[in-house]
Amino acid sequence: MLIGLEYVVAAYVIWVGTFAIYIFLTKRSMKNADQTATLLEQRVSESLKKSIPTENNENSN
């Protein structure tokens, strides 16, 4: 049995584990931001489409 093996394992596991969680959270945050932006853009374009005919109708009246 190697002396101090548990310390080496602990150091490497903490290091790898921390970055694995950090990368996962960063990627998830990027994905969420992307999805929300796409959704908002869709809603904005939909509301613009709806508002244009209304304005035309108002003008014709």
């Binding site: 960063t26 945050s29 990027m30 931001a33 992307d34 929300t36 932006a37 908002l40």
Partner: peptide, 15 residues
């Protein structure tokens, strides 16, 4: 990590 985080930051800013 820097580039990955920067991409996320830019997307958040756009949002």
């Amino acid at each position: 990590l820097l580039l990955l985080r920067l991409q996320t930051e830019k997307r958040r800013e756009t949002l």
